[in-house]
């Protein structure tokens, strides 16, 4: 991008000592190296712990409200979201996220964190334009693509017959 804008004969913006490509290579060499393996290990640990906590919540719903473990899935998600919102409000979740990477982003808690932090961040712009308008800034794409994907799947099964789904799901 930068190469184009500087290379088009505008002398005022000519780079002094490095071409844009050289600069990118230089910047890359100075970046702190992040091992993919360490990142994956952190993501595995934190993501695993979050899911294990979720399992605890599921067991609680199964034991106390006599749900099947599948019925307990929805209330579990709601409780995990509540926990994530509380941790985000306390400023703890973002600290975990810096360390854990995808480990705290991939669980629904990360989804809640993105909504909650956007809502808090834009509070000063007002309840409607700030909180209401920005809450789904990051989470919106997840909902859009999930809904479109579900719609496409639904149409496919409508065309080919819903029976096929029950044949495979049993």
């Amino acid at each position: 991008m930068a190469v184009k804008s500087t290379g088009r004969g505008s002398r005022a913006y000519k780079p002094v000592s490095m071409s844009s490509k050289e600069y990118q290579a230089f910047a890359k060499s100075r970046e702190p190296s992040r091992s993919v393996w360490t990142n994956c290990l952190k993501a595995f640990l934190v993501g695993g712990i979050i899911c294990a906590i979720g399992q605890g919540v599921t067991q609680f719903f199964v034991a106390v409200f006599h749900m099947t473990s599948k019925e307990a899935g929805n209330p579990t998600v709601a409780i995990m979201i509540l926990l994530a919102v509380i941790l985000t409000s306390l400023g703890v979740y973002d600290k975990i996220a810096q360390w854990a990477g995808a480990g705290s982003a991939v669980p629904v808690t990360g989804f809640a964190n993105s909504m909650c932090s956007a809502a808090i961040e834009h509070r000063s712009e007002g309840l409607v334009l700030g909180v209401g308008g920005n809450m789904f800034k990051l989470a919106g794409s997840v909902i859009v693509f999930g809904v479109v994907a579900a719609f496409v799947v639904g149409i496919i099964y409508w065309v080919f017959g819903i029976g096929a789904w029950h044949d495979i799901t049993g």
Partner: peptide, 20 residues
């Protein structure tokens, strides 16, 4: 269990489940 219901993939799963 929660290893499958807590990650965001379960959101896609639930959307399809509702639709179907």
């Amino acid at each position: 269990g929660a290893g499958a219901t807590v990650p965001i993939t379960s959101f896609g799963n639930a959307l399809v489940h509702g639709a179907l």
